[in-house]
Nucleic acid binder design. Sequence first.
DNA 1: TGTAAATATTTACATATGTCTATGTCTTTG
DNA 2: CAAAGACATAGACATATGTAAATATTTACA
Lengths: 116, 116
Amino acid sequence: MSLELTPVQAVACCSPLAREPLSLPDAEGIAPLLKALADPVRLRLMSMVASHEGGEACVCDLNDAFELSQPTISHHLKILHEVGLLDREKRGVWVYYRARTEALQNLAALIGGQAA
Amino acid sequence: MSLELTPVQAVACCSPLAREPLSLPDAEGIAPLLKALADPVRLRLMSMVASHEGGEACVCDLNDAFELSQPTISHHLKILHEVGLLDREKRGVWVYYRARTEALQNLAALIGGQAA
DNA sequence: TGTAAATATTTACATATGTCTATGTCTTTG
DNA sequence: CAAAGACATAGACATATGTAAATATTTACA
């Protein structure tokens, strides 16, 4: 167990952007989460997993949805997993990723939350 | 008038991530917005402007809040302005940036919106 | 008009990022 | 146990990014 918070945990700690100035440590904790989402391929991957039935999808399905190499998709999934936006579970030969929707909601609350 | 949508306009066009898979064009339109926010300095700048009274702030105040060079802050403000997250207005010698809160809310709705 | 102040632009550079090819690991099954 | 399939990791490379120094632009005012 690390004492460091994952970006997903960090995002729950702050009041909305428009409410009070974000501190440097908070900003440094949250930026990686946004960075993970700030790529067209990862945005689509996240959306595909989150909108898939059960909120999870197999890598085998995701690979076929892009004209990118399998290692590239694996790389992007790893980034989303590392910041805590996707959970990972291996079942037999296949790997399933599951969207952490509460993380998305925390992030949304931070970005769009009312000022007061 | 350009036929291209700014990222801020693009974000209003899509249903939430968890509702249906984001198309490639939509993802390419939205990613720049997230990219603009996905930096600790720009996150803080955005938060400082948005939480400032009147939703706007003078560059002179923002410069002092960071231990970064003036051109660097100017560069970050430009990025936030270009994607449409900040409006820019010059008054005399000073330049004021204003947060487009409806853009932040659209983005939040896209990220955290309910699946159905 | 000329000088100072506020902000932007240009240029340069070290580091980060997205992608691919090649290879490794793990699981199933013949 | 060997071979095949699913996914991850390592290494390499071109491009993008964050930053600063130097310079330009714009505005106010003496």
